[in-house]
Amino acid sequence: MALSRADVEKVSLLARLQLGPAELDRLTGELGRIVDFVEQLSELETREIAPLAHALDVANVFADDVVKPSLPRDEALANAPKRDDECYRVPAVLGE
């Protein structure tokens, strides 16, 4: 399953990354090598092996429903490219 330039273009759109033609070419090559590397797994016989949903053999990790302090608002908003005293500000959300 080779990765195509169209695949990378679609994924970059989904990831909201604006890539130029040269970047698309480079990333198609680089990502393609990663996909090929993972692709080696398909050579293994897995019919007898149960699917795995998690890398570690752990299950049922829960926390109690007890409220703990949240971040102060100023800290929560600190990384926002644009903000006011209360909220993050983003370009107008349309269509909803």
Binding site: A63, V66, V67, S70, L71, R73, A76, E86, C87
Partner: peptide
């Protein structure tokens, strides 16, 4: 473990987990 209370001042009930800061680890309630 941020509060779910309705009607609080905006952005006063958030933490690194629920605003997706790097390295935060979610744990099921």
């Amino acid at each position: 473990r941020c509060s779910t209370r309705f009607g609080a001042e905006p952005n006063t009930q958030t933490c690194p987990v629920c605003i997706g800061l790097p390295g935060a680890l979610p744990v099921m309630n």
